[in-house]
C-alpha cells in the first residue's frame, strides 16, 4: 500500500513540477517578447539607443535562464531562439528599422514556439 501511495504522490509531484515549468517558460518567453516589442517600438520612434538597450536586455534575459532552459528544453530549440535573439540584436546595432522588425518577428515566433511546445494542447500532445 505504501508503494502505491508513494507512486501516486510521485505522479502528482511530477505533474505539479510540469505545471510550474509551463508557468516559468511562459513567463520567460512573455517577458522577452515584451522586451523585443519595446525595442521595436523604440526603433520606430527613432530612439536607437533605447532599442539597442532593450535588445541587449532581451538577450540577457534569455541567457540568464540558460541553466534552467538547458535542463527542460531541447538544445536545438535553445540554439534556435538564441540565434534569433542575436540576429535581432545585430539588426538593432545596424539601426535598420525594416530588418529589425523582421528579426523581431522571427525571434517572437521562436519564443512563442518554445512556449507552445510546453503547453498542454491538442497540438502539442499529438
Amino acid at each position: 500500500m505504501v508503494k502505491e501511495v508513494l507512486a501516486a504522490l510521485l505522479l502528482i509531484v511530477l505533474l505539479i513540477a510540469a505545471i510550474f515549468n509551463i508557468g516559468i517558460v511562459n513567463n520567460l518567453t512573455d517577458e522577452i517578447t515584451k522586451t523585443v516589442e519595446q525595442a521595436v517600438a523604440a526603433a520606430e520612434s527613432g530612439n536607437w539607443n533605447g532599442a539597442i538597450e532593450s535588445a541587449e536586455k532581451a538577450v540577457s534575459l534569455w541567457k540568464s535562464k540558460d541553466s534552467y532552459t538547458h535542463i527542460v528544453l531541447r538544445h536545438s530549440q535553445i540554439d534556435t531562439v538564441s540565434g534569433a535573439l542575436y540576429d535581432f540584436l545585430l539588426e538593432a546595432y545596424d539601426q535598420n528599422a525594416e530588418r529589425l522588425s523582421a528579426a523581431a518577428e522571427a525571434a517572437m515566433y521562436h519564443l512563442d514556439s518554445v512556449a507552445q511546445m510546453e503547453r498542454v494542447r491538442f497540438g502539442s500532445v499529438f
Binding site: M1, A7, A8, L10, L14, V72, L73, R74, S76
Partner: peptide
C-alpha cells in the same frame, strides 16, 4: 542525442514506473 535533456528520458521512466505500480495495485 546529447542535445536532448536527460529529463526527457528520466521523466517518462519515472512516469511509467508509477503507472505500473498503480496498475499492479
Amino acid at each position: 542525442d546529447p542535445g536532448t535533456p536527460l529529463l526527457y528520458g528520466l521523466i517518462p521512466v519515472i512516469t511509467l514506473f508509477c503507472c505500473e505500480i498503480l496498475i499492479s495495485a
